[in-house]
Design a protein around this nucleic acid. Structure first.
Length: 280
DNA sequence: GTACGGCCCTGTTAGC
DNA sequence: TGCTAACAGGGCCGTA
């Protein structure tokens, strides 16, 4: 389940490979979650950005290819003919763009930009640059966690706009972008904050913001978290799952106080916390 | 505008 | 061993 660290790793790997490549052919499976991949034929991909958990690929005709990896999505660029043929035959391939060389001059299509997604939670959209109205979560996403303008006070104000439980707020992407179930549980554990709390003091909000930054940075340093499906653009697994303190450890001893960690479903997501360190 | 439940989707795991 | 049901969960939509 790719969250900010995993998506950022994929972006960093893909960005230098796109190199103004022109889309010479494309295809995708029919889905309401997908803009047909073919609409990009003839355009060149000029850059890769990230906003929260969304990847945004710029084109030379003022459009954006937006990809959300969902839970099991992965993006790769393959160039050797055997791998390219195998990728096209993959039953879980949901969208693909055959790329020519960097412009100018153009070459025949020789590399495949491929989106694979087993559980079909991923999304692919092509929109005019900056027009994110068709993706409400992206459209209303809060600041990036590492935005230098985001400080404890602003984060506290953003959290204060809702009375929903903290865990629900973090997953909504509104007060901060890019946090999913794993890193939300980890940050709340690190900050010793109960996930059911709906209100925080300004000081506690600042502590939570620092905890979010810590767990996200650690996730990136460790190459992302691979529980089952996540692979980076090179097909490699992450290492961060080894260092998780809360997520997926229900019933096991808290790494701080040894109390058994508790879990419950909050906002339809399994949430794990320490009832002692993170008492309400 | 906000909160909440349900849905999408399929591989894995637990239970019988 | 084989079958069935539960589970995992990010984003979106309909309803209250």
């Amino acid at each position: 389940m790719p969250e900010l660290p995993e998506v950022e790793i994929v972006r960093r790997q893909l960005a230098p490979l796109l190199n103004r490549s022109r889309v010479v052919e494309a295809g995708s499976h029919a889905s309401a979650k997908f803009t047909p991949a073919r609409v990009l034929v003839g355009a060149s991909l000029t850059g890769a950005r990230r906003r929260g958990k969304f990847l945004l690929f710029d084109t030379d005709d003022d459009r954006e290819l937006i990809v959300h990896l969902g839970m099991t999505g992965s993006l790769t660029i393959v160039d050797d003919p055997a791998t390219l043929e195998r990728t096209l035959a993959d039953p879980y391939l949901r969208a693909w763009w055959l790329l020519g060389g960097g412009a100018p001059p153009d070459e025949p299509g020789s590399r495949l930009f491929a989106f694979r997604d087993v559980r079909r939670f991923g999304r692919v959209r092509v929109v005019p640059t900056g027009d994110h109205r068709s993706l409400p979560t992206l459209h209303r996403a809060g600041p990036e966690p590492f935005d230098p303008d985001l400080d404890g006070r602003l984060f506290w104000e953003l959290l204060g706009r809702s009375r929903r439980r903290l865990k629900t707020q973090l997953l909504s992407q509104r007060p901060i972008a890019g946090v999913g179930n794993i890193y939300a549980d980890e940050a709340l554990w690190l900050a010793r904050i109960n996930p059911r709390v709906a209100r925080l003091s300004q000081a506690r909000a600042a502590v939570l913001l620092e905890a979010l930054r810590d767990v996200l940075a650690q996730g990136m340093d460790n190459g992302g978290t691979t529980l089952r499906d996540y692979r980076d653009a090179n097909g490699s697994k992450g290492d961060n799952q080894r260092g998780l303190a809360a997520y997926g450890r229900a019933g096991r001893p808290c790494l701080r106080c040894a109390s058994p960690l508790r879990s419950a479903v909050i906002d339809a997501r399994t949430t794990t916390w320490c009832p002692r360190c993170q008492a309400r």
